[in-house]
Design a protein around this nucleic acid. Structure first.
Length: 900
RNA sequence: GGGCGCAUGGCUCAGUUGGCUAGAGCAUCACGUUGACAUCGUGAAGGUCAGAGGUUCAAUUCCUCUUGCGCCCACCA
């Protein structure tokens, strides 16, 4: 069988993935004889298309899961998707808009139907893409956050929290997205700084309380002038002497001609603006607090699409930004604007559609977070849950300590409808933004509100059967936060899977959803399971483009992982990503970066191809490796020692989530030690012994590399089976993780190899320094004694080969010496050497050595160093000095000899 | 306003209790088709480890400050 000269991933990947699926390689079962290892996938949105962030996130997970599986754990990677309320609804709404329809035109039921249709058709796109990436998820367990069983869990938790008094309904100021027309949580409002203006507006003073003469007007500063239409007070700091006269005065709101109260509050910063604040309790979070505290009126001036309502008088019907301009115009006309300063305005933006958020008083449902946060703080403080990198611990604790109540009701249709029923008889079914805008928070259960998993037959308060379910749905994260246990069909009784796999082991995620998701999962796990949901949180960096800008579709700077897979293969993509993703640091990508992975895959492929060729050529049959009976020679021991070292390092790096070290170590061993040295060394002495070692190294590397490059390693593993008689596992992915081979390396042979390798480098260098073509084989005269002489002669074949040497003549003494090493002197049988060039290179080496020696001498002459430094260090430096000065001495002699 | 992170050859990064000659890959240059691989081989050049100060016998590494870049949090009207 002839293998192609280049590794062609397309021929391999789909076939192998299919093989894994058919053999149930990804499925995990409860197995009491094994330790479980479980990762739950951060469920991608059903609207999702695989991007580099996913590729990074999921490759890390796959590496860990595959590693643990090979280590003998019952390894489960739980997959699934998130219904992504707002995002998905937006997509389907857009599709509807193409037909000129709004969701209201077809009604809720029909619209939901359309959403499910869309989900069935496109919702698994990203799952297919994850398969392309090589993800070894247990697909039979795939879950969706709106599965019937999952909905049960959502309802269960809502009811439990409500019964515990941790869920309440109330009129509060919330973040409102006028485009999505829904409330958002604080986390969903992303603050961004924009260039804006600070307007100074004059408010006329009608009458002052004191008889003293007072100004005709006061000046307030605002960035959102249109909100003045909802002003019901002005406020000053009680200690601000400038405005004592204002106390008891009546201020008139321009345009609206409304009388405003004057209030005093410590919260007002006298330094800011004019020291007087306009207060708009219904449209500003701070003002809302002031309004509640001082019993102000709440005037809501906007409809749910941020168009001003009838409360806005002449501006009614205008969009908020139109109204801003219009209000300013009127004020300018009336000469009520004192000044306008350019100003950086920080405004919340909807994290789904990026529209500017409007703070707004609204009747919503909330979760009380402080009680849930308590334990979630403890488990992280006590390191029961550990973050990697650990700096995230601080970020987490800081957020958790300052946690605010969570607004969970959304005014959209796609999602889990609140398990809340209103009795028409007891509850007046007013609209959400009824005229009564005065906040009326009640944590006591209200009459006529029934919270239950199923619709009750009648109202428990009055017996009426006219019950209506709350039309709102829950925040998507209210279902996602149950992911680590709801995916195991919690709260079903006698749940063996849940018992076995929960708590899960590692959660791998980007820092962006630390608060949205990770923190909340910790709270929900503790609350509902009474146990942490995972022991480790691995936080990786953000994927950026070559300039360091975050990759995003809207910026058009994305590199499509599927395109990379198409061009270079999934393994190349994975390897390159893992190599670049140092733990927790951001990844800067450009297309060229994937060449490393592609080239490495190709290198492995060709080394394999070569080994198979040699096997066929020589007719050697490779059977299981028996190190003790092979009669290992120096290069064999050397390479197996390096291999052992690699096994240890790679295993340790994986245990510590340092995946970029894994790729580096394997790359280095395979390319340098194995290909550049060992294969070259044994090329001419290929026999049963070396074949065994070569194949053993290859098998071991395939295992070590399998978590990162699953396809290539499986393909080669299978090929090894057909080319040898090794007793291998059916698949590399279920093979056992490598252990270091049990043998000890004697220090002497290790030294011999190191010296031989060094000598070959010297010979190669000499050729360059002497102006000899590397292709030209030279005859070398050698004077060597003792062990190294013996080693030299024993290993002559490969030393000659790698040094480009025709033959070696051993002599007692050299007349001319080109190199003096430890126990060896060399000369080339060649007359016309480029003496100047050679001298030059010698000079340079001497200079470098001089510098190094000087530094050490300085240290060794320093009494304080000798006194204070540990003995080891001093000894080390002394040895080092011996070595360097020896080298220097020999170079000096060479120089003298050449001169003379 | 508070907190965090990063700054190492042209580029991307290693450098894990302070002490071997600060390493690698890519890019550059020179040479090379020696029976796998030009997606390759051999070799070379390239670094005041951002700046200043401090601790120490010794600092890329620890501390302080400065500068530059990035991120997160916050009720800066």
């Amino acid at each position: 069988m002839q293998l192609p000269k280049q590794y062609v991933p397309h021929d391999v990947e789909d076939r192998i993935y299919q093989y894994w699926l058919e053999n149930g390689c990804f499925s995990a079962q409860v197995d009491a004889t094994k330790q479980p290892f479980c990762i739950v996938i951060p469920p991608p949105n059903v609207t999702g298309i695989l991007h580099m962030g996913h590729a990074l996130n999921n490759t890390i997970q796959d590496v860990l899961v595959r590693f643990k599986r090979m280590q003998g754990y019952e390894s489960l990677w739980m997959p699934g998707t998130d219904h992504a309320g707002i995002a998905t609804q937006n997509v389907v709404e857009r599709n509807l808009a193409k037909q000129g329809l709004r969701k209201e035109d077809i009604g809720r039921e029909k619209f939901i139907e359309k959403l499910w249709e869309w989900k069935d058709q496109y919702g698994s796109t990203i799952i297919g893409q994850l398969k392309k990436l090589g993800a070894s998820c247990d697909w039979q367990r795939q879950r969706f956050t709106m599965d019937a069983s999952y909905s049960e869990a959502v309802k269960e938790t809502f009811v439990r929290l409500y019964e515990k008094g941790l869920i309440y309904r109330g009129n509060y100021i919330i973040n409102w997205c006028p485009r999505c027309r829904t409330a958002l949580s604080d986390e969903e409002a992303a603050h961004r700084e924009l260039d804006g203006w600070l307007y100074y507006i004059r408010y006329p003073v009608k009458k002052a309380a004191s008889n003293k003469r007072s100004p005709d007007y006061i000046v307030v500063a605002t960035t959102r002038p249109e909100t003045m239409l909802g002003d019901t007070a002005v406020a000053v700091n009680p200690h601000d002497k400038r405005f004592t006269w204002l106390k008891g005065a009546t201020v008139v709101l321009p345009i609206m001609d409304r009388e405003l109260k004057v209030i005093e509050d410590e919260a007002i910063d006298p330094e800011f603006g004019t020291g007087i604040v306009k207060v708009t309790p219904a449209h500003d979070p701070v003002d809302f607090q002031l309004g509640k505290k001082h019993g102000l009126d709440f005037v809501n001036i906007m409809k749910d699409d941020a168009v001003l309502n009838e409360q806005a008088g002449e501006f009614s019907g205008m969009d908020r930004f139109e109204a801003r301009a219009a209000v300013l115009e009127v004020l300018r006309e009336k000469k009520l604007i004192e000044k306008e300063d350019p100003y950086k305005v920080s405004a919340g933006h909807c994290y789904r559609c990026h529209t500017v958020i409007e703070p707004r008083v609204s009747l919503q449902w909330f979760v009380k977070m402080k009680p849930l946060a308590k334990k979630a703080l403890e488990v992280v403080e006590e390191d029961k849950i550990r973050f990697s990198p650990d700096r995230w611990k601080k970020v987490y604790l800081n957020w958790m300590n300052n946690i605010q109540d969570w607004c969970i009701s959304r005014q959209i249709w796609w999602g889990h409808q609140l398990p809340v029923y209103y009795c028409r008889n007891c509850q007046e079914m007013t609209g959400r933004n009824s005229k009564s805008q005065i906040p009326n928070p009640k944590s006591e259960p209200e009459h006529g509100i029934i919270v239950a998993k199923e619709k009750p037959a009648e109202c428990p308060y009055c017996g009426s059967t006219e019950l209506v379910q709350d039309p709102d749905v829950l925040d998507t994260w209210f279902s996602s936060w149950l992911w680590p246990f709801a995916t195991f069909y919690w709260p079903k009784e006698g749940n063996k899977d849940l018992e076995y796999f929960y708590p899960t082991n590692v959660l791998v995620t980007a820092s962006e959803i630390l608060f949205f998701w990770v923190a909340r999962m910790i709270m929900s796990g503790l609350e509902f399971m009474g146990e942490i949901p995972f022991g480790r949180v691995l936080i990786h960096g953000t994927v950026r483009d070559a300039k360091g800008i975050k990759m995003s579709k809207s910026l058009g700077n994305v590199i499509d992982p599927l395109e990379i897979i198409g061009e270079f293969g999934a393994d190349s993509l994975r390897f390159s990503l893992m190599l670049l993703a140092a733990s927790g640091s951001d990844v800067y990508l450009s297309k060229e970066k994937f060449l490393v992975g592609r080239n490495f895959a190709n290198k492995i492929w060709n080394a394999t191809r070569f080994l198979f060729m040699k096997l066929e050529e020589s007719g050697v049959i490779v059977e299981d490796l028996r190190v003790d009976s092979l009669g290992l020679e120096a290069p064999d021991i050397w390479v197996l020692d390096k291999l052992n070292e690699t096994v240890v390092q790679v295993t340790e790096s994986l245990e510590n989530f340092r995946i970029n070290e894994v790729t580096k170590n394997i790359y280095d061993f395979f390319w340098n030690s194995f290909c550049d040295w060992y294969i070259e060394i044994v090329k001419d002495t290929f026999n049963a012994k070396t074949a065994g070692i070569l194949i053993w190294c290859l098998v071991t590397v395939m295992k070590l590399l399998h978590p990162v490059m699953p396809f290539l390693t499986e393909e080669i593993y299978q090929l090894i089976k057909t080319h040898t008689r090794l007793n291998l596992n059916s698949s590399v992915m279920t093979a056992s993780w490598p252990e270091p081979l049990p043998f000890t390396v004697d220090e002497a042979s290790r030294m011999m190899m190191a010296r031989a390798i060094e000598m070959i480098r010297v010979i190669r260098n000499l050729k360059v320094d002497l102006g000899i073509s590397p292709a030209q084989k030279i005859v070398m005269k050698v004077s060597s004694r003792g062990d190294f002489r013996r080693f030299f002669e024993d290993n002559l074949i490969w030393i000659n080969r790698l040094g480009g040497i025709e033959r070696v003549e051993f002599v007692d003494r050299l007349r001319r010496i080109l190199f003096k090493g430890d126990g060896v002197e060399l000369d080339f049988l060649i007359d016309d050497i480029d003496r100047d060039r050679f001298m030059q290179s010698l000079d340079k080496k001497v200079t470098i050595l001089d510098g190094q020696c000087d530094r050490i001498v300085q240290k060794l002459r320093n009494e304080k160093f000798l006194k204070n430094a540990p003995e080891d260090t001093v000894l080390q430096q002394k040895e080092r000095f011996e070595q360097l000065s020896g080298q220097r001495q020999r170079l000096e002699e060479l120089r003298e000899a050449l001169k003379g």
